[in-house]
Simulated assay, not measured.
Amino acid sequence: MSSSRGAGVCGRAAAMDEHHGTEVESAVQALEALEGLPDPTNSSLIEGSWQLIFTTRPGSASPIQRTFVGVDSFKIFQEVYLRTDDPRVVNVVRFSESIGELKVEAEATIEDGKRILFRFDRAAFNFKFLPFKVPYPVPFRLLGDEAKGWLDTTYLSRTGNIRISRGNKGTTFVLQKSADQRQMLLSAISAGTGVKEAIDDLASSRQGIEADLNTLAGEWQLLWSSETEGESWSSVASAGLKGVQIMKEDGQVKNLVKPLPGVNFNASGNICKNRDGNNFNLSINEGAIQAGGLQFPLDARGEFVMEILYIDNKIRISNVNQHKLVHLRIANRI
């Protein structure tokens, strides 16, 4: 392994002396000699967000590596998304939770079972204190071949939590899979803090599946919604801002809310996908209040646009009537 001293991230390797750096490099070579997952680029385990825990920095390393790698206060991540309509490798320098991050993105293609080819095409700073992104001042289009590169994954653990990759500039990277973003969202909801940030992270992760009536079909329990104070119970039931939502493949929708023991609000209607991305038109045309064995009509009529921000086989994040909602699938197609 041709390299200079090891340099790491978040204090794990930044303070390494040359002796310890050599020990880590020996451990890297030992892992590469083991039988990790074969053809790692063909495995879904390579997908997701990876935190850099160790890297070497030869003289040919990129300016970003030379500037940010080894700085204790920064965290560095690499996001790999190969099974989407827009395959990408994204390098993220996270300065702090209060300041923001730099994202450097590259188009990606799989060359073989180990190598990913990439071409950097955009980058921007996302500062928490600014309502807009600040472009990173590098004209990737003018760099030609300098914006291109490759990344070989020489080891991917069979559990998918440790990865070793080597870049075309001679740099070796040791990365650890970040905590599952779905679990981070559920933990944030449980703790009652950082939910909006966790929603944004998961919604932008590219890990979800395409939203259509088939993927929406099922029984969904609402886990979290943005502020609903001041909303009437009929509005809550109509928009599905509380309780359970049942969707069928033919577009039928039913919202169920239980404000008190023995008292149920329900609202029924239809949903269909419109032509605008992941937006769906939701029409509620009837409702009822059930108390014991009695039932009374409820005016729950309403027209809404439901934007699906993220969906997979367990979690759904949507935006309805200016409310962000997080649902957990509790039953598959009804």
Rank of each mutant, 00 (worst) to 15 (best):
D85R: 14
L34E: 15
Q295I: 11
F173P: 00
L117Y: 01
H19G: 11
E229Y: 00
F127D: 04
R301Q: 15
L223E: 05
I289A: 05
E227I: 06
H323D: 07
P297D: 06
L186E: 07
L117C: 07
A331Q: 15
N126K: 13
D112Q: 06
P87W: 04
V80D: 03
L151P: 01
L222G: 03
F173T: 00
F54L: 09
S98G: 05
I164Y: 02
I199P: 01
P259V: 04
F265G: 09
A124N: 08
D112H: 10
M184F: 01
T159Y: 07
L298K: 01
S49E: 02
N168C: 14
T172E: 06
G262F: 09
A237M: 00
K103Y: 07
Y81L: 13
I46P: 01
I289Q: 07
R182L: 07
A331L: 14
V263F: 12
T55D: 01
S318K: 01
R115W: 00
R206A: 12
N279T: 09
N91M: 04
A239W: 02
F296E: 13
F120N: 03
K133R: 15
K242A: 14
A203T: 02
L309N: 07
G277Y: 10
R316H: 03
Q29H: 09
L151M: 12
A191S: 15
S283D: 14
V257T: 04
I110V: 15
K169R: 15
E146N: 08
E105W: 04
T159F: 07
W50M: 01
A147Q: 06
R57Q: 12
S4E: 15
R301A: 08
V89G: 05
R83K: 11
G293R: 06
H323G: 06
S98I: 04
K75C: 11
E25D: 14
G208W: 00
G59K: 07
Q181H: 06
P135N: 09
S238P: 05
S62L: 11
N321E: 11
E18K: 12
I76T: 03
F132H: 09
I246Y: 01
T171V: 14
N168L: 08
F77W: 03
N266K: 10
N266T: 08
K314E: 13
I162C: 04
V90D: 06
D112A: 07
I162V: 15
K273P: 08
I162T: 15
G21A: 12
V71C: 05
Q51I: 13
R5G: 11
F54W: 10
R206N: 06
V93N: 04
G302K: 05
A124L: 04
M184E: 14
R182T: 13
D86L: 10
Y136R: 04
K148V: 08
L309Q: 14
I289L: 12
V326I: 10
K273T: 02
A30Y: 09
G144Y: 12
N270I: 06
F265W: 11
A15G: 07
G144K: 09
N281D: 15
F127T: 02
N321Q: 07
K242F: 07
S235R: 08
N285H: 13
R141M: 08
Q207V: 03
S318P: 03
R57T: 12
V257F: 06
A33K: 13
I308D: 02
E286W: 03
S2K: 13
F265D: 00
A61E: 03
Q221R: 13
K258T: 14
L260I: 08
S204T: 04
